[in-house]
Structures are given as C-alpha cells and as structure tokens.
Amino acid sequence: MSSTAGRSQGEPPITATVVTYEDQEDECTLHPANPDEHERTTAWISAKSDSYVPLSSCR
C-alpha cells in the first residue's frame, strides 16, 4: 500500500509504502514519490510498526 503525504508548497512529494509481513512486524518506508538516481538509494527511511507514535503525541 502506498500513499502520498501532504506537504508544504515547494517540497517534493513523499510516498509512504507499507509492507505487511505474516512472520514479523509490518514496515513503513517513506521515500520521494519520483526519486532521481541518487535519491533512489539515499533518500528514504523505514520503521517497524511497533516504532510508530501518534503525531498528536508529538505536538
């Protein structure tokens, strides 16, 4: 499953891709929606589902 997150004007679109596993925690990767060759291997971050916190708890 993928979705493009909201962004400020001028920022590149970011896509969230969630991979569901049967034998381990699900994983979400945030990455540029249309990466160039360099970004394809350097501009992403992944987290397991037990690492997420609600945005409201950070404000």
Rank of each mutant, 00 (worst) to 15 (best):
E11Q: 15
D36R: 08
A16N: 10
D26W: 03
P35T: 02
P32F: 08
E25L: 12
T17K: 12
I14N: 00
D36A: 01
I14L: 12
S57W: 00
P12I: 02
G10L: 01
T42L: 02
Q24L: 06
S51W: 11
A47R: 06
Y52K: 12
E25D: 14
S8Q: 12
Q24H: 15
V18T: 15
E39W: 15
S51H: 01
I14P: 02
A16R: 11
S56T: 07
K48I: 12
S56E: 05
L30W: 15
P13S: 04
T17A: 12
E37Y: 09
S51A: 11
D50T: 08
T20Y: 12
A43L: 14
T4E: 00
T29P: 03
E25H: 09
S8E: 14
D36K: 06
C58H: 12
V18I: 07
V18N: 04
Q24M: 03
E22W: 09
A47M: 13
L55N: 12
D23W: 01
L55H: 07
H38N: 10
E11A: 04
T17F: 09
S51L: 09
S49Q: 01
L30K: 10
T41F: 09
D23T: 11
G6I: 03
S46I: 07
R59P: 05
W44P: 05
S49M: 02
W44F: 15
N34T: 06
R40C: 08
Y21V: 00
V19D: 15
T42F: 08
P13Q: 07
P32I: 00
Y52P: 05
H38Y: 02
C28G: 13
P12L: 05
A43E: 04
I45L: 13
D26S: 09
Q24W: 14
E37S: 14
V19C: 08
H31G: 02
S3C: 05
T20V: 13
T15V: 13
Q24I: 09
E37R: 08
A16W: 13
P35G: 00
E37N: 10
G10S: 13
L55K: 11
H38P: 01
E27V: 12
R59S: 14
Y52F: 12
P12V: 03
S8G: 14
T4Y: 02
I14M: 01
H31L: 10
G6R: 01
C58I: 13
S51E: 01
G6Q: 14
S56D: 06
A43Y: 09
P35K: 00
H31F: 10
L30A: 05
D23R: 02
C58R: 15
P13V: 03
V18S: 05
S56F: 06
M1K: 02
Q24N: 13
D26M: 03
T20K: 13
E27N: 06
G10F: 00
E39Y: 02
A33V: 12
P12C: 10
S56N: 08
R59C: 13
C58W: 15
G6C: 11
C58M: 15
S49K: 04
A43C: 09
D36V: 03
T42P: 01
T15G: 07
S57N: 10
I14E: 05
